[in-house]
Simulated scan of single mutants.
Amino acid sequence: MATTFETLHTVTTTEGRNAARAHALAALADPKVTGLPAHELQQLCTLLAPAQAAIAEQRQYLQRGGPRRKERGDHGRPLLTPADKVLITVVYLRRVCPQKVLVELLGINPNTIGRAIRETRTLIEEHQIEFSQTSHYFSDIDELRNWLDNDTTTTRIEAARALTHPDLTGMTRDDFQALVDRISVSYRASIEQRRHRQRGGERRPGTRGGLFRQKITDADRILATVLAQRQLCDQQTLAELFGVSRGTIRNAVDDVLPLLQQHGITPAPAIRQFTTAAEVLDLIASDTDHKSPS
């Protein structure tokens, strides 16, 4: 049976499109997507609402060419409410998917999505609020639909999550996430500095930032480097586990290792070494609930 997501672009009535969009927004508000409990997302919306209202009023003032001449009318629900704009901005900042996927998922003009994210991101940055990058990265709308509809992940995402097992990283999952949060900012800064040198200057206006071209996420790269430094297995085995080339793993280690060293982080050597990807996965499968570090 077709899901609401699959029928978004096939419904012919405004009512049908609005219902499909509402369903998609409700799915995006799931804590597994936003990384926030429902009450914290609501608190963020409440915090930003006054500034959002001021921006909207200023835009309307400029469009009218002066102050409002009569009382505000009730024109129905807008395509995106202030809370919707906060939601999609949080999803975007966590790098769940690029804007083009949000455009397809919600059936909204790219300019509308882009402006909503741009304005809301500015407000979030003014409050110095940051969001950790999720490992749930989707460059394709069908993968995102499947994950939202079925509460399942792709094989690559499942593997990356499994590889944060404490017996592999030598730390609890909470400690590993703290490490990712600590290193990610420095990692993105170093990558941008390198691209700046390669370009010979600032990125030209209108060009893409390249945030969504990577085969694995920043968190995956940090994870691969930790596993490599623990000498858990060789880089070819890591490549098989992450579903990428050995060159991708080698580049990840080359980029992330100096940052670990700068932060004084030295992963402890693993007690056990593995020669194949199957051996690593067998360990995970035999003790999926184990929490203590090796």
Rank of each mutant, 00 (worst) to 15 (best):
M1L: 14
L8F: 05
L8A: 10
T13V: 10
G16H: 02
A22E: 15
K32M: 13
V33H: 04
T34Y: 00
G35L: 06
G35H: 01
G35N: 03
A38P: 09
Q43E: 13
L44V: 07
L44F: 02
L47P: 00
L48A: 05
P50M: 06
A51N: 11
Q52E: 13
Q52D: 09
A54H: 12
I55K: 03
I55R: 08
A56C: 10
L62C: 10
P67D: 15
K70H: 14
R72D: 09
R72C: 09
L80E: 05
T89S: 08
V90W: 05
V90T: 04
L93G: 01
R94S: 04
V96E: 02
V101W: 01
L102P: 03
G107I: 02
N109V: 11
N111R: 14
T112D: 02
T112F: 06
I113T: 00
I113V: 12
G114T: 13
R121H: 11
T122Q: 15
L123R: 00
I129H: 10
E130S: 14
S132Q: 09
T134P: 03
Y137G: 00
Y137D: 01
S139C: 10
E143W: 06
N146T: 13
T152P: 01
T154G: 13
T154V: 07
T155D: 14
R156L: 10
I157M: 10
E158K: 14
A162C: 11
H165Y: 02
P166L: 02
P166I: 07
P166R: 01
L168W: 00
R173W: 05
I191V: 14
R194T: 15
R195K: 14
R197I: 14
Q198H: 09
G200Y: 03
P205W: 03
G206F: 03
G209F: 09
G210Y: 08
F212G: 06
T217K: 00
D220R: 01
R221A: 08
I222D: 03
I222R: 04
T225H: 00
V226F: 07
Q231E: 14
C233F: 05
Q235E: 13
T237G: 08
L238Y: 00
L238C: 03
A239T: 05
E240F: 05
G247P: 01
G247M: 14
R250M: 07
D255R: 12
L257T: 08
L257M: 10
G264K: 04
P269Y: 08
I271C: 09
R272H: 15
R272K: 15
T275S: 13
L283T: 08
A285E: 15
S286M: 08
D289S: 12
K291G: 07
K291E: 15
K291A: 15
S292G: 11
